[in-house]
Every structure is written in structure tokens, then in C-alpha cells.
Design a protein around this nucleic acid. Structure first.
Length: 496
RNA sequence: GGUCGGGUGGCCGAGUGGCUAGGCAGAGGUUUGCAAAACCUUGUACGGCGGUUCGAAUCCGUUCUCGACCUCCA
């Protein structure tokens, strides 16, 4: 399939045609999690969005280097303490134990949500040398100053000389001056409130610190992404992504650092995913407006009436555009669950379909047109809700062929092949969905058993022994297995 | 207060000048031994008020309202 890819660039605030720096290759950097506690659902949404984007870029034919970092140092809390250090003290663990524990948890959750692993997953603490070098470059270029062992980025000077500070987030430096809080740590050391630390001198009790030309300390939070993206993708690469809430100050400062260090902008396209809401508000741990992935799976939360499978959640998120907020609610999840099942059932039915015609008929045309449309939708800034709606058009065709409402003579074997390919390409490869209700190791036993049961029930029905056949149906129903009698025999589905 | 983004039928959610997605729920029908599933039909939707236009949910103005960021956040 052919098309040109357009994506919404947060920097220019409009859709632009995507042109890679090197034909056929894409450098993609996404800001990963800070591993100081269990992943929360909001993070999952962001990484599922970028997973979908990564998958589509691959499908489009690009060779993608997908870099997603792990932040394991340098993230300050309000009181100035490192998040990892704080976690270490709390759990009586080595900082690196904290990091490992939550990194493992993060990876497990990403697997559960069926996301592809990034090509490189660099950690901040493994790139202290690169970060120190970048601080030095920024100092050498005159965009930073040393104060009492810490190094601060000089935003005023950078803004005056380049005019590039605040461009991404639409901020003006004078406004920042007026609005900044004055209770930040080390505020007095800064020349300007909007200046930010690129190297911090560590307090004696600080657990994670390294030697540097300026002090024994640790790198500023924003610096790691600048240093690691440069290292693995080059000074200027194609796409940088992250959650909307990272736009300011994180991404804004990243741009400043890269510009300050090498005089070039870090990337050509900025992609930002929108927030996951609950009850109309951003999901966040601090105010209790949150539900963990585990709670959502088990249903053990006042926010949901039952549990939802990981794939239902993934499907639910794909139903909204990545740049829109998603408000999670029990009602919406229930609707998503039904839609998801319908989609998966059609996938199973599709396997059994047969085409008899050698010549392309009307249905062939429809399939070709829907396939192309779905591809075009994805090319238009990854419009998953629209592309998904095309999939439901395919579902309708599949079910109609199966049910006999559509004449399979109108479909050539080649058309059927296209249908199967399109379906699997979008549902499994691009959207990253899988049938988590039946696709597991036990499914072959279950299939065999069910075939037997269905066979026995069919015999009863032929003898008009409704008592037996209805009993089989009712008992299975209690076991959450639903039988579906169709024209071409009986099917079944797990009704979780 | 500053910056940015929303408000679409009962719910979720695309669309962004005329062709009026899709899912869920509801109604009627076909099918079925009965159901379920599937299929078919069915929706006076675009926050309010003005304006531009032959024509606006879509553009402009204004107003109300919700949210995000401005402090760590995906």
C-alpha cells in the first residue's frame, strides 16, 4: 500500500508531511518512565500509543531505531530529594535495587499490554560521562554558569541570542519570571527563576552521586534525554515523543540543551500524546484519582464493576486518537469490551471462510477500498479510531459472508486473501491486539473438547431432544462459554 | 493570571464548508425448535449568541463551560 505519512508536529502546531533525514530510516526517541514506583495506567497509555506509532512506521516500511530511556536518577522532588533515593530509603534498598525492581515491573506490564520492545533502552546512570561532556559543551558555548558546584542553564542568555526558548510550549521568558515560584531549592543560586540545573552538587547524605569537574553530584533531569538521544540517534534525529505533560519544562529544556551544546535542534518532529483521565480529571497518584493496571484487570477497585483484560484496555485506548484525552469509565470499558470481542470473533470466523470465485467480484472491490482507506487513516497522523471503524466494516463483510447474507461468489480467492491480510495486518501487527480470551497454550485442548460437546449437542438437536441440547447450552453458559448456532454450524466463544 | 487544547445524538468517539465514521446501548424486523449470535432497518447530534456563505458541526467574532501545563509527572 502506498501513501504519504503526515503527522502533527507539536513544535509547529500543524500536520506536516513526514520526511525522514535518511531515506528509509527513522530515529525515534520516546521519554520513558522514572522507575521509582509501579507503572501507572497513564504511562501505559503513552507507551501503547508510541507502540502503535512504532508498529505503523515499521509497517510503512521504515527501518526504525526506537530509543526509549529509563530514568533512574536526577528526578527531583519538591523537597530536592532524588526520587530513586527516596524510594531506596523507604524500602531499605540500594538505589539500584529500586531501579531494577520497578524496571522489571515496567517491562512485565509492557509485555502484558503486548508492546514491542524498543531497539535501545538506555539508562541515565549508564550515561553519566556523556552527560558531563554535554554540560561541558554547554558551558564552553556560554549557555551555562557554575554556582557553588552546580551548573545552571542560562535561559535568559539562550533566549536572547537564539530566540528559541519557549517555542515548543508557547512560553515567554518574562512570564516565567513573573510566575515562577520562589520556594524552589537553590533558587538563590540561579540568575533567573527559569534557569535550570544541568548538574547538581549533591548534599553529603545523597545516595547517588558522581565525580565531575564541578562537584560530586548528579546530572539534571532534562539532561539525560539530550545526551542519550544524541548518542544513539545523532545530534538531530527524526521524531521525539513523550507525554503532553513533559512539554514544559522537560522537552523545552531538552531543546535548549541540545541547541546550547551543538547549535542544532534535537529533532524535526515532536509528537505528544494526551493524558488519560478518570472522572474528567488527569489520572494521578498524588490526588488518589487513579486505578492501577492490576486493579483494572481484576476489577478490584471502586471505579469499575468488573475486571477488564489487557487487550480490552488496549482496544479501548485505540478507540481514541493519541492526541485526545481519554476518559476512562466503567461504561466506556464495557462498550469497548463488546466491540473488542466482536472484532476477535470475526478474526476467528475469517479463518474458516472460503472463496469460490476465480474472478474478482463486488466484495473484492469493497475490501480493496476499505484496506486502502484504513491505511490512509493511519497515514493521517495515526488515526486509529478511524482505521478501527474500517475494521468494523470488514467485520460486517466477514459476518455477512459467514451468515450467507453476502454471496461468496462475489468474492475471489485473491480477495479473501487480501481480507485476511488486511485484517491481520491492522489488528495484530499495527494495533498490537491479540485474542487474549482463547489464544493460549490450553486452547487446543479446549477446541477439541468443545468440538466434541458441540457434536453431541448437534445429535440431540437432530433427535429434537431439546432437553439435552438446552442443558448443554445452559451449563456452558454458566461456565461463561457461549454457543452460537449459525448457518454453517455451531460456534462458541468465551464470554468473560 | 499566562500558554495550550476541548465541548458532537442515551454513552464512548472520529470528522472539520455540501457526499452527513465506527463501537456500545435502545426500537422494529429476518433467521432460530426456543434463545443467543449474526444480518437488515431505525437516530430532528454537533455548548449559547451573532456573523461570513447559495450552504457551517466544520470559517470568523463573542460568550459560557471543562481540562492540561506553568512544581515532579506519561
Amino acid at each position: 500500500m502506498k501513501g504519504s505519512l503526515h503527522l502533527y508536529n507539536s513544535l509547529t502546531r500543524r500536520k506536516e508531511e513526514f520526511k525522514p533525514i535518511n531515506e528509509g530510516f527513522i530515529g525515534l526517541y520516546v521519554c520513558g518512565p522514572t522507575v521509582y514506583s509501579d507503572v501507572h495506567l497513564g504511562n501505559c497509555r503513552t507507551f501503547m500509543s508510541f507502540d502503535m506509532i512504532y508498529r505503523f512506521l515499521l509497517k510503512f516500511g521504515y527501518n526504525v531505531r526506537y530509543v526509549r530511556n529509563i530514568t533512574d536518577v536526577g528526578h527531583l522532588l519538591d523537597d530536592g530529594e532524588d526520587r530513586i533515593s527516596k524510594g531506596a530509603r523507604k524500602d531499605k534498598l540500594e538505589p539500584m535495587e529500586v531501579v531494577q525492581k520497578y524496571t522489571n515491573g515496567f517491562h512485565d506490564m509492557m509485555d502484558i499490554f503486548n508492546t514491542l520492545r524498543p531497539s535501545i533502552e538506555p539508562r541515565a546512570t549508564q550515561h553519566i560521562i556523556e552527560q558531563i561532556e554535554m554540560v561541558q559543551d554547554i558551558l564552553d558555548n556560554g549557555y551555562a554558569y557554575v554556582e557553588n558546584g552546580s551548573v545552571y542553564f542560562d535561559t535568559t542568555k539562550f533566549a536572547e541570542e537564539t530566540g528559541k526558548y519557549g517555542k515548543l510550549s508557547g512560553r515567554v521568558i518574562e512570564d516565567l519570571l513573573a510566575e515562577s515560584r520562589d520556594n524552589l531549592k537553590n533558587q538563590s543560586e540561579k540568575k533567573h527563576p527559569s534557569d535550570f540545573a544541568i548538574w547538581m552538587k549533591a548534599a553529603p547524605e545523597h545516595l547517588m552521586k558522581w565525580n565531575s569537574p564541578w562537584s560530586e553530584g548528579f546530572p539534571g533531569w532534562h539532561l539525560e534525554c539530550s545526551a542519550m538521544s544524541t548518542k544513539y540517534l545523532g545530534k538531530t534525529f527524526d521524531i521525539h515523543g513523550g507525554g503532553n505533560d513533559l512539554k514544559f519544562p522537560h522537552h523545552e529544556n531538552e531543546i535548549a540543551q541540545n541547541e546550547g551544546a551543538c547549535g542544532c535542534s534535537p529533532c524535526n518532529y515532536w509528537l505528544h500524546t494526551n493524558m488519560l483521565l478518570m472522572n474528567g480529571k488527569k489520572m494521578s497518584k498524588s490526588d488518589g484519582n487513579t486505578i492501577s493496571p492490576e486493579e483494572l484487570f481484576s476489577g478490584d477497585s471502586p471505579h469499575v464493576s468488573k475486571g477488564y483484560s489487557p487487550m480490552v484496555i488496549r482496544f479501548f485506548m485505540l478507540m481514541a486518537h493519541y492526541r485526545s484525552t481519554v476518559d476512562i469509565s466503567d461504561e466506556a470499558l464495557q462498550a469497548a469490551e463488546k466491540g473488542y470481542k466482536k472484532l476477535m470473533e470475526a478474526g476467528r470466523s475469517l479463518k474458516q471462510l472460503e472463496a469460490h470465485s476465480a474472478e474478482a467480484g463486488k466484495i473484492d472491490e469493497q475490501i480493496n477500498s476499505i484496506s486502502q482507506s484504513a491505511f490512509d487513516d493511519m497515514c493521517d497522523d495515526f488515526n486509529t479510531p478511524k482505521a478501527l471503524s474500517r475494521m468494523f466494516e470488514l467485520v460486517n463483510i466477514i459476518n455477512s459472508l459467514k451468515g450467507g447474507q453476502l454471496d461468496s461468489k462475489e468474492l475471489s480467492s485473491r480477495g479473501l486473501e487480501t481480507l485476511k491480510q488486511t485484517y491481520s495486518s491492522f489488528i495484530y501487527d499495527i494495533f498490537g491486539l491479540k485474542n487474549d480470551l482463547v489464544d493460549n497454550d490450553q486452547s487446543k485442548y479446549l477446541d477439541g473438547l468443545m468440538n466434541l460437546v458441540i457434536d453431541i449437542r448437534q445429535s440431540s438437536r437432530e433427535k429434537k431432544d431439546w432437553d439435552t441440547s438446552d442443558k448443554i447450552r445452559d451449563v456452558l453458559k454458566e461456565l461463561k462459554i457461549q454457543l452460537k448456532d449459525g448457518q454453517s454450524g455451531t460456534d462458541w466463544t468465551i464470554d468473560g
